[in-house]
Design a protein around this nucleic acid. Structure first.
Lengths: 224, 224
DNA sequence: CTATATAATTAGGAAAGCCTAAACATGTCG
DNA sequence: CGACATGTTTAGGCTTTCCTAATTATATAG
């Protein structure tokens, strides 16, 4: 089982190789993790020795299939935790992200699965990114779907979309259906009333949607 | 802020001084934490240096007010987490205890409070112990109330009790009231149907209560 | 093609926690 | 009272992960 520090490095390397569309550099990793470059070089050697990364001195690092599988596993934990913290416990998204970073290393697979089940197996994160399933090396397609889903509160006036209530708890689903909104429903934004509060048409009827809930309903935009 | 290892030691010392009704011995701590005695001696010196414990070489350790406050804070986190894992996520109580041990060090105060609120500010743990509030050095009274509350599933045939649904989630409260059970209600066990399933009378009417839910309803027993 | 800026690595060392083996206290039993 | 079993501490060492300072490799601009 990988330990906490190794997990942190692998996660960062996954993030950077995706961002770079190429190897992660020593200095980048150091900056990301707020460490000195020599510390990173040292750990790189260790990760290489354990078969998690490919590594050419002076040229940077990419994940091996083994390392990528591990990194994706951690990313999934992070995303599920983040989703749970935001959707169930109603934490501030930014705070939830930081908290998930802390918790993702100590939570067990069992507990994570229970959380996942409790939320109804969400497929997207509060930040709009799809939640992985441990598959190896994220494909272009997966990356392309980034931000496919956005919170309802971010739709512009006049814009249309489809509701995707994939990641919400029973509680929020209930509140939603009580105001007449259901998954896969076509909606159009009428007016933005400020601070995320808006007035939309759904199935021909006009509905007001409050700030808190609007930021939690993920929609797929179809433009104006 | 205390670190993870210090928290673990303080928690153990609180547990042992309570159990001993006297100082915690080096070997006890070592055994509890599965460490060698010299490692414990070393950490004891550190804790003493930071003012968390009183320490006389060869005689053992007690908590100072500072140490006790800290230990109680950690104990509360542990208990709240354990309650959350059992009552909300439906984890096996034994597993939840172990998991809480891992998570209690990384979860933030903010998240913990959100969990607490989500559960409706529970006052007892799934194990029947009262959840502390960070008060210093547990009193006799606090210890005396251990196991005042037991799961409904443990009431014997013919025994009476009062329902204390202090630590349950909305979900379970709903399931409860749907079968006609409410907090502070007087009940009497009619028959035990095996495996925790039982038939009880509440407000004059007979109700069947299933295994899962019976083990989560805490009651104060009044005897047969 | 060389001088130089930038990036990465080596060298050497520190702190935290852990270990084993050996020395040392303490309380008890004859 | 003294010897011994038990429990505790000292001595010395190991691993992990981090650091700074100095060195070396690479890429680029003139």
């Amino acid at each position: 089982m990988t330990n906490e520090r190794i997990e942190e490095y692998l996660e960062t390397i996954l993030y950077l190789t995706n961002k770079n569309k190429g190897p992660a550099k020593t200095n980048q990793i150091a900056e990301e993790l707020k460490l000195s470059p020599p510390s990173v070089t040292e750990m790189i050697r260790k990760l290489f020795g354990s078969g998690y990364i490919k590594y050419t001195p002076y040229h940077g690092v990419t994940l091996t299939p083994k390392g990528c599988t591990e990194a994706m596993r951690i990313k999934r934990r992070h995303q599920l935790l983040e989703t749970f913290l935001v959707d169930v416990l109603d934490l501030d998204p930014k705070f939830a992200h930081a908290e998930a970073c802390e918790m993702e290393h100590s939570i067990s697979e069992t507990t994570l699965e229970k959380m996942c089940a409790y939320m109804g197996h969400p497929e997207i994160c509060p930040d709009g990114n799809p939640i992985g399933h441990g598959e190896c090396c994220p494909t272009e397609a997966l990356n392309a779907s980034y931000r496919d889903y956005i919170p309802l509160s971010e739709l512009k006036e006049g814009e249309q979309g489809t509701i995707k209530i994939i990641s919400l708890t029973r509680e929020i689903k209930d509140r939603l259906s009580s105001i007449g909104l259901i998954p896969d429903q076509e909606i159009q934004v009428k007016r933005k009333l400020g601070q995320g509060t808006l007035s939309i048409t759904a199935m021909g009827t006009e509905v007001a949607v409050g700030k808190n809930i609007a930021s939690k309903i993920m929609v797929q935009s179809h433009g104006a």
